[in-house]
Amino acid sequence: METAFIITILATAIQAGAPVIYAAVGEIFAERSGILNLGVEGMMLVGAVSGFIVAVNTGNPWAGVIAAMLAGGLLSLIHAFLTITLHADQVVSGLALTIFGAGLSSFLGQNYVGVQGPQFNPIHIPVLSDLPILGPILFDYDILVYLSVLLIPLSAYFIHHTRPGLHLRAVGEDPATADVMGINVARTRYIYTFVGGVLAGLGGATLSLAYTPGWTEGLSGGRGWIAIALVIFAFWEPWRAMVGAYLFGGVQALQFNLQTIGITIPTYFLNMLPYLFTILVLVFATGERMKRHLGAPAALGIPYIRGER
């Protein structure tokens, strides 16, 4: 009983963490380049609904995933154009994007609420999936969960150990210097804002095609905001974002499973838990950040205009 309960919690945590990982890693890329995109929630919603619509109409969930990534990416380009080309305020533009994305997704999805569609199912790996304890915790997921885990080392390696990663960091920290050293600041920022949108869209698709298959209005339920909070908690590092995403997933899993073992806490309180947890994480993270030398990318949120220092 006890073991089974813990296994369920861990397995649900990893499952529930996947969409948040995508969104958070995407936001890490955007913020590392100096662009704060508060539109993650909107991009996730539009990604989720576009992915679901395309998957339903083609019958192919992969087509849905690609559509979701494109939709998220396209939406992020609006933010990129406003903030990079027009030097608009990043906070305002990002918030507008979230509001726009919420509305757009409701509009697009109005005929798809409650519709059954194709979805990604857990992959059964012979032997491994049947292992006691380890099987259900590590080897009983759909492909999008595995890909989200794979994304972590890849993105960490990219940021810290490749030349484009070095340029990405330089642009986010000190765009004027990067410019003088021959790096195209605007292009770099466009690229990584787009990457952020693509990954947020993918996070949305993970919701509508795997985690909670189907479409309902406001499907992402604030996960985009949690992803943004996790980026701060993670000090802009993918590994820490993964830890944060699973912690969030774990709290969510508790919320579902406490009742099954007979602990009665009002559901409203449980619904609140992940967000309360996120606030605590932020308090803790910013407190620690003060003691560290490294924090947010120095140029985060500041438009770069050549010749103005």
Binding site: L166, D174, M181, L294, R309
Partner: peptide, 26 residues
């Protein structure tokens, strides 16, 4: 007069910043 160095990068990273070599892996 105002140095063009990124404070959060190392000396090596600053020296090679913007160069085409190494190509991908640092």
């Amino acid at each position: 007069q105002h140095f063009r160095l990124v404070p959060t990068l190392t000396v090596i990273e600053n020296v090679i910043l913007g160069l085409d070599d190494p190509k991908f892996r640092l």
